[in-house]
Amino acid sequence: MHDPDAPDHDDAPSGLTRRNFLTRAGAAGIAGVAASIPLAAALAEGVPEATDAAPDIPGTVPIALRVNGATLRMRIDPRATLLDTLRESVHLTGTKKGCDHGQCGACTVHVNGERVNSCLRLALMHEGDDITTIEGIGSPDALHPMQAAFVAHDGYQCGYCTSGQIMSAVALMKEPCGPRDSDVKELMSGNICRCGAYPNIVAAIQDVRGNSPMRQG
């Protein structure tokens, strides 16, 4: 996909690359909403036309996103990714940006129960979908069993890939996956952990699945 002869510099001559197209798209999303919807209001179900008071930023469009069970109305740049919209407009920062190219998995969220790289999705395409982020599956007082297992098995170090790992792992529970560690590894290979906590991540997932981790193959 990437031509090694053509390094993708930020300061390269103008012309939209796929990457800076998406980055730019995210920026307008913020401008469109950050000023207008306080987080608490945004999270309340059915905020009546909260964006009415927002300045009508040229080029933005209205959208209603259903995130963690709440419907949020906002204006976004039609080019905004789901990742940037969640982080910058909805202010849910548990979902992380590791590469913005769909290569690392740190931005994994659920769309209608299935895991996706939110950096590769346009927010506009998900109106009406059920979007779930790490904040939607559990809280410090009521951990999701997978979150509890990651803590118990030390399935993290720096924590930056962790929400993506957990969201992937939760979705994996409903996917066809064999019982072995190698089956889990195959299905978790889209989530990179540079700290290399992989053995503990596999152990955590196997624990929740009710399989005793073999720590092999």
Partner: peptide
Amino acid sequence: GIGKATGATKY
């Protein structure tokens, strides 16, 4: 642990 597993930790 808890902050990292719930996405609450701020980077």
